[in-house]
Design a protein around this nucleic acid. Structure first.
Lengths: 134, 134
DNA sequence: TCTTGACCTAAAGTCGACTTTAAGTTGTAG
DNA sequence: CTACAACTTAAAGTCGACTTTAGGTCAAGA
């Protein structure tokens, strides 16, 4: 497949694919003249990359996790990321509760409300970011 | 309090506070000569801003939510954000499950595994970002 | 009174993840 | 065989959220 096919199949732009290649995240199977061609395993690798981006990893972190040969993942890092994700989810749920309460709280001013107070403290400690797009 | 006090109390740098003021997110209570001074309600406003950042709002979105007068929040937007957060949490949990599975899956290659396959599809549809720092 | 550390402004710089642009090359349909 | 749509590269641009820098002002302690 050529770059346009991969773009179509992955939802990424050709420029993004070239960029990922430049960063060492993917490789083309070769060239026809100047033009890259890819085999279909690149799609799985891209899916893995999307997954990583989804859970908030940077491209650099992702390239550490992706084993350069083949299409697999570093399991230790995976476990670590799972644990981080657990914490993040817990905090988000607490905040979600707080927001829900705030949205329906009869107090004229949220800051008067003890539930909201707790919420503000919770958000005080920011965790790691979660990047993603579209 | 002067800007250094607010910085200390909020965990934000003076430069960030000036930046937030420039963006219209906060206001100082006045000046002593050139120097800004603040009253303590700015701390609550900053806590609210942190909260917004935490749940993935941009500074522009936050300034829409914060009522310019006083220290309160737009409740409709709050409800909407709560709903978005629900979706986001659900997806993160699914992915968390998938990662957990992958980290402990005996298959030599995750891509062989149907659980991981589902996971990859899930991550395909990226949601909105969640920004935050530190 | 003098010094100095904390403050001020405007403008430029940074970072990650791309996208866009400018200029050039080429596989392929007609 | 020719045209041209689709590819190529290197470099510059963009976006959000800040931070840093350069150059200046000033309140307060010694």
């Amino acid at each position: 497949m050529d770059i346009a096919d991969v773009a179509r199949a992955s939802g990424l732009k050709p420029s993004t694919l070239r960029y990922y290649e430049q960063k060492g995240l993917i490789r083309s199977a070769g060239r026809h003249g100047l033009r890259r061609y890819y085999d279909t395993t690149v799609l799985e690798r891209l899916a893995l990359i999307n997954l990583g981006r989804y859970v908030g990893l940077s491209l650099d972190e992702i390239s550490q996790m992706l084993l350069p040969n083949g299409v697999d993942v570093d399991r230790a890092l995976l476990r670590q990321k799972t644990a981080e994700l657990d914490k993040q989810i817990a905090t988000m749920q607490a905040i979600r509760e707080g927001l829900h309460h705030a949205a329906n709280c009869p107090a004229p001013n949220h800051l008067a409300c003890p539930t909201f107070q707790r919420l503000l403290k919770l958000a005080g400690k920011r965790l790691k970011p979660q990047q993603s797009k579209l």
